[in-house]
């Protein structure tokens, strides 16, 4: 039998965290599919012309109301425009708005949460009261208030949605900063003579950032939904811009006769959100702390 050596060496460390995140797709077909979906949609947004040679804005009147076929994947609308081309070109609008909204939420939340959590006292009190208030108005209504103030357009939608989510990010960031700040290893750093301008970037930020990024991943799907909902309500780019939500709103008038006009763009939104949510769960499990 083995006798313990004076220096027990534990089994080799598991692969690094990032490595684990990227290994998961290989094991789960759902995750692989989600990655493919998001890569495809990203491709639509970046180089729409590779995916559809048709124009999203003009169509042949002779081609009106064509149901989906090998010629028109998603069918055509009342002006003969190819819906697939409109969805592909709309990806850029919808995803840009989503990205902008998340950047605003992330940036604002990280800064406010950091200030509240690290410096505390009155800054903390003021920020957290403001967070409490913004979280006491239903999010969609708050976004609508901001849209009222800012006016109509995809950019405005993005700012409105992003600003609405700042509160949630602030809360998570603050909680993380407080958690890390109370960790014995941060106190140990103080004992080792580290000053706050070293502790903040070297100790607190890297540890607190993981959960906040996980929240951003989780928020992605929600923001895509919110952007398309506001587009559906008519607050996005004015027509004929092919934003996803407004595509559905346009198709609503032909609900009884041309099902594809509402169903296929909506399905695109649903699949993108589903894929994003699936991936965010992987991030949450592997990337966030513990």
């Amino acid at each position: 039998m083995t006798t313990p050596s004076p220096l027990p060496v534990e089994p080799a460390e598991e692969p690094a965290r990032l490595h684990r995140v990227f290994r998961v797709p290989l094991r789960s077909p759902g995750v692989t599919l989600s990655v493919l979906v998001l890569v495809l949609v990203l491709g639509w947004a970046l180089v729409p012309d590779w995916f559809s040679s048709r124009s999203p804005l003009t169509g042949l009147p002779a081609d009106r109301f064509q149901p989906p076929s090998s010629h028109h994947f998603f069918g055509t609308d009342h002006m003969g425009r190819d819906i697939y081309a409109r969805v592909v070109h709309g990806a850029a609008l919808s995803l840009r708005a989503t990205a902008l909204a998340i950047l605003i939420a992330l940036g604002g939340g990280v800064i406010l949460g950091l200030v509240a959590g690290f410096f505390g006292s009155w800054a903390d009190a003021v920020i957290m009261r403001a967070v409490e208030v913004t979280m006491s108005v239903p999010p969609l209504l708050l976004s609508l208030t901001l849209v009222t103030a800012l006016g109509v357009g995809t950019g405005q939608i993005a700012v409105a949605i992003g600003a609405t989510s700042v509160a949630a990010f602030t809360r998570v960031m603050r909680a993380e900063v407080l958690r890390v700040r109370a960790a014995p290893y941060v106190e140990a750093a103080i004992l080792c003579g580290a000053r706050w301008w070293r502790i903040l970037p070297r100790y607190i930020l890297p540890s607190a950032f993981g959960p906040v990024l996980a929240l951003a991943a989780l928020d992605f799907g929600l923001v895509v939904l919110a952007v398309s909902s506001l587009g559906f309500l008519g607050y996005g780019e004015p027509p004929p811009a092919p934003e996803w939500g407004s595509l559905v709103a346009d198709g609503r008038n032909y609900l009884a006769t041309a099902w594809w006009l509402t169903t296929l763009p909506s399905l695109t939104v649903a699949v993108v959100v589903l894929a994003a949510n699936r991936l965010s769960r992987v991030f949450e499990a592997e990337g966030g702390h513990r």
Partner: peptide, 9 residues
């Protein structure tokens, strides 16, 4: 993940 406007439609 389903947009609620679509569920309604």
């Amino acid at each position: 993940s389903l947009p609620s406007f679509w569920v309604g439609l």
